[in-house]
Design a protein around this nucleic acid. Sequence first.
DNA 1: GTGTTTGCAAAGTGTTTGCAATTTA
DNA 2: TAAATTGCAAACACTTTGCAAACAC
Lengths: 142, 142
Amino acid sequence: MNPDRPYAHLVTRLRETGLRPTRQRLALAKLLFEQGERHVTAESLHGEALAGSIRVSLATVYNTLHQFTQAGLLRQVVVDGARTYFDTNTRLHHHFFIEDDGELVDFPGEGVTVSGIPETPDGTEQTRVDVVVRVSRQSSAN
Amino acid sequence: MNPDRPYAHLVTRLRETGLRPTRQRLALAKLLFEQGERHVTAESLHGEALAGSIRVSLATVYNTLHQFTQAGLLRQVVVDGARTYFDTNTRLHHHFFIEDDGELVDFPGEGVTVSGIPETPDGTEQTRVDVVVRVSRQSSAN
DNA sequence: GTGTTTGCAAAGTGTTTGCAATTTA
DNA sequence: TAAATTGCAAACACTTTGCAAACAC
């Protein structure tokens, strides 16, 4: 939080994407990128910010997440319908989706092969293949 | 629409699942199951019903879609985050998702193999593997 | 008749937007 | 100071809910 040394690398990273390194964006970037790979929702990140005494509005969190996504710093993940997840891992990978609690877990995409996909519909080209492995917690009672 | 011959097989199908074959449920079942495999949203189905002069409320459409899903007559598909799709194809299959217009296209699951999935997270077991092949319309301008 | 189902309108989520006030360069 | 960004509150889209009236058996 020292304003004299405000995470130079994050400042640079934001500048490179054409986003002004504002207090809010820096704070969110710090939460997002300074603790390994993670999955957040707008609300979870907003909660973290507030918990860390970072004053930022939910609207700004949404804006920032979308701007970061557009800049290639985040990847948007759709699994659950209800909420939108953002993933700080932008490399090729897929997801386990733990149905019981809506948690996401990455797994690397390098070793994964999907074979047997038919031709894409007329006039379309393949953008990406997403694999979601849905899992549920084993209950010994089952 | 002849009340004297109200689609006996649909009536039976509903009865088997423990759902009373009400006018609304029969009408929706007819729209859903009498014209091949399809993907609907609550709103699209509601629109169809109204267009076909079937008086049914949106709330009932939602209820019915969920009841049918629970009964195994439909499958819920998550791809787009904004809306929930229901698929009358309950067999093993995957989806093309046409990003430009949010349209879904099925492809059969039999020929598809996903290899290289690591072990599921601790204490969980695999429920299902969903493959979404995202495609976009080719523009000659691109 | 009795329990189920429906429809309405209201409430609930998660997300987006308009705009004045603030901040950045 | 000019342009970008923020925060608020209101608006949104989609979905769920509570409850009285209508319906199925």
